[in-house]
């Protein structure tokens, strides 16, 4: 009886690993121009939208894309987000940052702001809007006497929706938009010990966005 129970448990666990934790990413791209070819000396900056406190783009998502863009083949010079925001203070803080290209045009009329951007060798801004949320969850786990005595099953579904807008500083226009939508389900079965089978939704959304951006900017 015990052997049968162990086999069922093992098969269920393997099945969960196979079907579980799956993530699906859909990438949608809209370009106003052909792919941009950045010069070796050019830099870019990735900025997250944080003007609405409930829907802020996560700092770690922006730094994840930054790391991917500045590594490997076709690497780009990416200025760290916080360094850029601090050095451009107060014009790129969450409540004062330009919300559209026209406002950027007004901003660069000021010689000191334009000089800073020129010193950075920035010709393109990448604004990223969106976040990762849990959209569905079910099940329950109860633990008696600490984590070594748990039983139950919990599952939750995360969704990551992000949109990148590439602004061209030279002609103050939008050069392209990339939209990614990633969904993934995580499982937490618990028989004595809880075993988390996590879907890395944000990480997949980062991979998808970074790949598309690199292709667009190379």
């Amino acid at each position: 009886m015990l052997i049968l129970f162990s086999r069922i448990l093992f098969i269920t666990f393997i099945g969960l690993i196979i079907v579980g934790c799956n993530t699906v990413t859909i990438v949608d791209e809209h370009k106003s121009t052909n792919n941009i070819k950045l010069a070796d000396t050019d830099s870019i900056v990735l900025l997250g939208r944080r003007h609405l406190s409930q829907h802020e783009t996560e700092l770690d998502y922006i730094s994840c894309i930054g790391k991917q863009l500045s590594a490997g083949e076709g690497r780009l010079n990416v200025i760290p987000e916080q360094q850029f925001i601090d050095s451009m203070y107060p014009y790129f803080d969450p409540s004062t940052a330009p919300m559209n290209v026209k406002n950027l045009d007004k901003l660069i009329q000021h010689p000191n702001i334009l000089k800073k951007l020129t010193d950075y060798k920035i010709n393109y801004f990448i604004w990223i809007e969106g976040n990762t949320k849990t959209i569905d969850k079910s099940g329950a786990i109860s633990c008696v006497g600490g984590p070594a005595g748990c039983f139950g099953f919990a599952t939750w579904k995360d969704e990551a929706i992000y949109e990148a807008k590439i602004w061209n500083l030279k002609n103050t226009s939008v050069s392209g938009k990339i939209h990614t939508q990633t969904q993934g389900t995580s499982f937490l079965p618990a028989v004595i010990l809880p075993i988390p089978l996590l879907a890395s939704v944000k990480s997949h959304a980062c991979d998808g966005m970074a790949t598309q951006l690199k292709e667009f900017l190379n």
């Binding site: 203070y89 107060p90 014009y91 803080d93 969450p94 409540s95 004062t96």
Partner: peptide, 10 residues
Amino acid sequence: YRDLAAKLIV
């Protein structure tokens, strides 16, 4: 205060 000062300048 950082937010307030930014809004004051702008």
